[in-house]
Amino acid sequence: MRSAIVIRPPHRWTVPDLRELWQYRELGFFLMWRDLKVRYRHTVLGALWAIIQPLVQMLIFTLVLGRVIRTPSPQIPYAVFVYTALVPWTFWANTLNACNYAVMNNAGLIRKVYFPRLLIPLSALATGLIDLMCAGLVLAGLLWYFKIALTLRALLVVPLILILMLTALGLGAGLAALAVRFRDFRFIIPFIVQIWLFITPVIYPAQLLKSAWRPAYYLNPVAPLMDNIRAVLLNLPGDWRGLYAAVGWMVLILLSGIFYYNNQARRFADRL
């Protein structure tokens, strides 16, 4: 029997159709592949760009914060200390921006072709994940150079990145939908991301933030994540209480972000 498709005016709140998303997984893969391919096609350095961004940031922060200001970094060379958190931070920051640009860049598609709109932030996330892996390889090299041995605890980085990923997806999608509704957010998002770095323990130890104002650590969805990713990789003491907060934030942000995006996405074609 032929399957019937029924088209009706949308309800106020709809649940994302995960089965349909799965049916379109190949398109998601193609969108990611296209973005990767196009991004580096006319560049001389190609995929090296994925590594250069956090690497240059590391050099600058090491020079300014490590050498000049002498930011404390417990028992670890500052360069390694800052890079272990800069890698997930770059992933986070790029994903938030990429979701926003991806919706704008695919406006032509959205106006003319039907596909589950969630594929757009999802493929932006996946593209960022590839960059994350490249930058992760450099981190491995750096750890080897400074003779820092990974312990079994380092395996915990996988679930931590997973939490980071889902939080980034929720917030990235939500902000991208807001940017379609209110143009201002196109300018606000990069600005938020820029400021956010300084209220997150990436370029300084979490202890500094906690001693300044303790709630700042728990109210920031990514602060415990950056802190704990660094802790498990460099075998430093972590903050598991902060992790509970981060998981709570993840659930909240993921659900609300995806629901908002999904509901706004129905009108993308009329608004973009």
Partner: peptide
């Protein structure tokens, strides 16, 4: 019909 945009009223059934 191709679900790029949503209707305000009514219903469509596609087989």
């Amino acid at each position: 019909l191709c679900r790029v945009t949503t209707p305000t009223t009514g219903e469509i059934v596609l087989h």
